[in-house]
Structure formats: C-alpha cells, structure tokens
Design a protein around this nucleic acid. Structure first.
Lengths: 289, 289
DNA sequence: CGGGCAATTGAAATACATCAAGGCGTGTGG
DNA sequence: CCACACGCCTTGATGTATTTCAATTGCCCG
C-alpha cells in the first residue's frame, strides 16, 4: 500500500482522480503542486459514459463541500483560520477485498473514497453479515465517524480503491464553531440515518425481488449522481455475494431472482456492468417511491 | 390534549414525572413553581420496582444532560448566556395509540418522552411497517431531529404518554458554539446509528427466535437503565403486533415463538408485564453479545 | 350484553434456505 | 501452453422457516 501526504484539499488536487470505474490506478504525488491551478480542461479528456470527472466528483464529495467549498463560502464570518490550511490527508490505494477499516479498530482517521467501490458492513462472529452501505467516490466512510471513532463496522474494498485518510482531530477543530459546516454535517447524518431506517424497512418488510430491484435502482441513482452522462448502463463490480449480504438473502437465491429479472427483460448484467432495460417495470417490481 | 408552557427545565421541574410504568397521569402546571426547589424526598414515596424516580430519569435523560447538566458544567467557558434561561417547552399528555409525530409533518419541535412508552416507525403506503425503536422516558424522539426536521417517521404512543416539546431553533441556538454539548449530541447520534445498523443485521441475518429474544433483552436493559431497583420483572405494554413490527415478523408467528419461549420457561408474560425467568438460556437463544 | 381487538392454534401455502452437482472463466504453477 | 484449482454463477431437488388463512377463545370497554 502506497501512501503520500498531501496538504489541504484544493480544487485542483481532486484531479488526482475520482472516477467510478476502477482502472488500475497509480498514486500521484500531488503534494508540491497542490496549489498550482490545474484546470480540468488540461486533463486527459476521458469523459466517457460512467466516468466521472473530478468536477462532478468534487461537487458530490462531502469532504470537498464540507472542507473546501465551505471554506470559501464561509468567508462571511471573516476569519482566515490557519486550521484551514493545515488540513492534511494521506492517500492510499489498495486492491480489491482488502480492508479499509477493521471492525475492532478505533481509528483516529476518517477515510473518504476517491475511486472504486467499497462496502461498509456489520458482521456476526459466525460469519453472517449485513452490508449497510456501498461506498462510491466521494463517500465519507460513515458520516458518524467524522466526529467520533465509531467502530463495529468493517469497511472493505470491492474493487481496487483509492481513498484519503483525514485526521479526525483536524476536521473536528475545523468544524466546531462553524455553524454552516455543522449544518452540512447534520444533513449528511440525517441522510445516513434515513437510509439506515429504510434499509431496516426493506429487510423487515419486503420480499426478495423487491429488495433486489430496489438495490439496483438505488445503486443506479447513486452512480448517476456521480456522472455527467445519463445512461442506463453502468459499471457494476458487485458479486452476487455482495447483493446477498446487502439484501439479507442467500447467494443462491439472489442468483435465482436475478435470473428471473434478466429473463423478464428488466435488467441485464454482464462483464461487470449492469443495464436497466425496462426502468418502469423494474420500478414497479421495486415498489419504487 | 392539554398543554402547558413551562420555562427552562430546572432539576426540580423533572418532578413533573418520569416513570416507566404508565399510570393515568394528570397534567401538572409546573410553570410558576418551576424554580421552587421541590426535593424528591417531598414527593409521594412510590419507589416500587420498575418505577423510576425523577433523579434516575434525569440522569438518563439526554435532554437533561444536554440542556441542564451541560449548562452547569459548561461554566468552564465562562458566559452565562441568556439563551440558557429562555429555553421553553410545552408539556403534553396523550392517550395510547395517538400520534406524537406524523410521517409527513415537518415539525419545528423536538419531543422528548417524559412518561409512558412510544414507538418510532417507518411505514409503506400499503400498511407494512417497521418499528425502528421504542421510546421510553428520557428518550429524544430521534436524535437526528434535534438539529434538522427529519420526517418520514411516525411516532406513536403505545401507552398513555407525557412528553415535552422543545423548540428546535432554541436548542440549536443553545448548542452551536458549545463544543461540550455538541460532543454529547454526537454521542447520542452515533448510538442511534449503531442501533439502526444492528437492527439491520438482526432483520437481515437472524431468525425469528433470535430476533424476539434479543428484543426482549434489549428492552430489559433499556428499562433497567431507568430504574434503581434490579428486577427480572418489568412493565411490558407491547402488544404482539408491536413485537411483530419491530422484528419484521407476523403477529401469528410472534405468538407461536413467544409461546415456545414461555413453555420453555425462559420468559413469562402476563397482564402487561414481563419476567425473564431464565436469563442465561434466553441469552443463549438470543446469541447475546 | 355485544362488539372489537388481542392472542392462540392448526392446516395449508409459499418464500427462502440448504444441499449438491455441473459449467464457466481466470489465474497459476508445472 | 496446458492442467488444474478455485471462485463464481447456475440449476434442480429437497428441507424448513415463516406466512397466510381460518376458526376459536378470552378480554376489555362501551
């Protein structure tokens, strides 16, 4: 695992890569040039479908909104705090299936996904586990972990993943006293809680096909938020085991239900990519909204 | 529904009643005497098993910890803010089965349970629903709702319930800038999220008997925190329908499993009260901790 | 005293899990 | 380059947990 320390999170630094698909990605040392204004226009033009430019990713990224944009807009209350400039992060790249956060670890760091897919789950000693959320570029690994080390969760890379680790204490120091940043944080919290509650509703009260269809639609929307190009096809690196652990089902049963959905022409999955072929019907199955 | 406006939440005001059991309770106008030091010793001595004195309740009550104790301890940073004194709340008493918070309502108030049992749930249009948590005296109706109106939840009284409604804006005004209060709030929030995630794990990956046994043990601990007297028997106003909606099961099936648990001599339920007769075995069934 | 909610119980249906076998793709070591 | 192992997916047969349906009882409350 490589690791590079960078200073702050300037707009240009995000050029270090936020893309949804997970290509073999190299670490770039962006420490020294961090403040040089690299414009997106100067970057390689690979804005293909389902590939996220840094612009879009940073718009979504809570870290960016909380820590950077918030910074600029926050000028209202006057002070150019030194804390702002000293916010540091280390960048890490890890292969698929590696852990980003161990369930027992009480880390002083807050990881934020930069590229690739990860998952956050809770598990029983006997191996049964429940995936709480899938993490895509721009996602904070558990909003709650921002201000207090919360554990019991396992965070694992699904594809190769690049992420930044911020020091919790620095973030806290920055946020306290900034009402606007706190407001944004509360927004994130409430979203996370609302999703958790919806998950409980799904697991407790919906049947297998509903759950799976809903998972697909949720992921589809989540991916869509991270891309400029609308498309019914997107990268889908999940194994059926992941779908099973997210929906509280068995891999075998997931295979059967997924097979039905495909035979019915609602979706199509091949070579790690998913296409929604009949959105309205899929939404009907999912009892969407 | 009666309603009385009181000022602040002084230690003595909690004498207005925090008890776990839900007797027919009358509103007491505590507005004018709020600041008179009514000592618990002067109250009727009904400290029976499972009856909570205001002392214990206030120790537990997040509102009290956040808004009152925090107040006193917070003297470290010097200022005696006027906001502190102007924190107001209305007290309400409602019968069983009445709603405290409507799913679509975007309320400007934060309710806190003072007596009785309530439940917080999310529901589907077709009537299926999932109980997210049971609320006992001292519980804030959703920690997240403290700082942003979060809805989609239905909060319903199970027994007759007394609760206070605080103005969100006042609470926010009080909390911002008080690092110690914010820390406590984060703690509450993280607890809530952790419970929600455990709930998802239970619903997704445990079987009926485990879920029910765990619910009983959780409630037992929750009640125990609110009483001074240790006892294996406690008030249990839940209908099997509530257990079903909390565990993602059917009332019929709850009846069967509960019947087995009772026939096996693990628990006993009669006349709205529950006794854990074989804790160790119940914990084994529950796969506890 | 009657009506409605709550709980119990049994029989039948069904949704999902488990078990088992085979195919397919992919990486790996000979 | 091939053989092989391994993980992943599929499919069918079988088992089981849970739901649904239905009938009965008790109880509380008007």
């Amino acid at each position: 695992m490589t690791s590079t320390v960078i200073k702050a999170l300037p707009k240009s630094a995000s050029a270090a890569g936020f893309n949804v698909s997970a290509p073999a990605m190299e670490m770039r040392s962006i420490g020294s040039q961090a403040l040089a204004p690299v414009r997106p226009a100067q970057l390689p033009q690979l804005v293909a479908a389902n590939t996220m430019t840094c612009d879009v990713a940073c718009t979504i990224c809570p870290a960016f909104n909380l820590l950077c944009c918030g910074m600029k807009e926050g000028d209202a209350d006057g002070e150019g705090r030194p804390a702002t400039q000293s916010l540091s992060a280390t960048v890490h790249t890890i292969p698929a299936r590696r852990l980003i956060l161990h369930p027992k670890e009480w880390s002083d760091f807050v990881p934020i996904i930069c590229s690739g897919w990860a998952m956050s789950s809770v598990a029983l000693p006997d191996g049964r586990r429940q995936i709480i959320s899938f993490l895509l570029p721009g996602d904070i690994v558990s909003a709650g972990s921002l201000l207090a080390p919360m554990s019991g969760h396992t965070v694992e890379a699904i594809t190769e993943v690049t992420y930044r680790k911020f020091k919790r204490e620095e973030i806290k120091g920055l946020m306290f006293g900034r009402a606007d940043l706190l407001e944004k944080l509360f927004g994130l919290w409430n979203e996370a809680k609302a999703r958790a509650d919806q998950l409980a509703l799904d697991l407790g009260r919906r049947r297998a096909d509903e759950r799976i269809a809903r998972l697909i639609l949720r992921l589809s929307e989540k991916v869509a938020k991270r891309t400029t190009v609308r498309s019914q096809t997107f990268d889908f690196p999940l194994r059926q085991r992941h779908i099973a652990d997210a929906t509280g089902l068995t891999p075998v049963h997931v295979s059967k239900v997924l097979g039905e959905l495909q035979r019915a022409g609602l979706v199509e999955i091949n070579s790690r990519s998913l296409t929604i072929k009949n959105a309205t019907e899929l939404q009907r199955v999912a009892d969407w909204r």
